[in-house]
Amino acid sequence: MRLRNHGFADKAGKPGERAGGVHPYWELLCILEGEAELEWSGVTYNASGTALFVLMPNTPHQLVQRSRTLRYWYAEFHAGDGDPLPAADVIFRWNALQGGIDWTAEPYPALRAAFDATGLLLRSEASLRWDRFPEAVLADLTKLLVLTGSLAAASRPAPARSSGELLATEALRFLESMFPQPITLQTLADYTHYNPSYLVRLFKKHTGKTPFGYLNELRLSAAADYLLRSDMTVLRVSLACGFQSIHYFSRSFKRRYGLAPSEWRRAMRG
């Protein structure tokens, strides 16, 4: 693991101010005080008071301030093969918990103490030796990743089985969380524990769309965000959003937005 960028923000400003973007690094984002929304990978997560988000590389993210004051820290880092990184489904499940955690109740106080300590360390950078500071921060980040992965894995809800509407909601959340990954109908059926053809009928009944029609919309929306806010190539955008063929991506994008990806980017950026 190698530290790339970090910071501590104590902001007094107008609600609606934004910070973020996209980068090829892992990131931990910790809200310490105030209210905010995190827009990440096509989903909006609410954070009030305290929250800890894990962000994967190449995923667009925007932190939207919702209170007049907001305190948070962030740390971006390169990860190696041996680093304790949670799996993608665990990360999405963990981020979805933010905004609803009682940090005074077990098993969360240990994690709360750990990210409070990380924030204190980041604020004290100027008083520490420059050559040992990254090592100390990375030790804290490693601890946070281990604790986060453990707590998220233990919080997995049982698959919804009670009604077609709940099944559709479960499938929607899965697609919204996992859209950059290769997904087949069997993947979705295995996750929900329903017959594939029955799943498609119920999903369309309750959403008006097929699962893969909805998945394609998610991927195209994420692609538009990448094209607008980053300098990633069209090929990288295509792959980051789950398209296995750049030609299929370009055709799908033009059908939805009226222009090819590169043309749309130029038009939107003026």
Rank of each mutant, 00 (worst) to 15 (best):
F115Q: 06
L85E: 00
R269P: 01
A189D: 03
H78C: 12
H6G: 08
G149S: 05
R256D: 01
A51S: 09
P159V: 05
K14A: 13
H6V: 10
A79Q: 01
D225Y: 12
F212C: 01
P24E: 13
L199A: 04
L228T: 09
R123M: 13
V137G: 02
D140E: 10
H23L: 10
E76K: 07
N58W: 09
A105E: 12
L111Q: 09
H78F: 14
D131M: 11
L85I: 13
L228K: 06
G149W: 00
A126E: 10
H206Q: 10
G21I: 03
A260G: 09
V22K: 03
Q186K: 14
G164E: 08
L235D: 15
L32M: 09
G119V: 00
S48H: 09
D89E: 12
A110P: 07
A75V: 14
L3F: 12
V234H: 14
H61V: 02
E27C: 03
E217V: 03
L235E: 15
A158L: 13
M178N: 00
A222L: 00
Y74F: 15
T50K: 14
V90D: 07
A87I: 04
T184M: 12
Y226R: 02
E33P: 05
D10I: 07
G7F: 06
L147G: 02
S230N: 06
L120Y: 12
L3N: 05
L3D: 06
Y72M: 03
D190L: 07
T187A: 02
E263T: 13
L85R: 04
L215H: 02
S67T: 02
Y108W: 15
L235M: 15
T187F: 03
S155N: 05
T187N: 01
G208L: 09
Y248A: 15
A117D: 11
I183M: 11
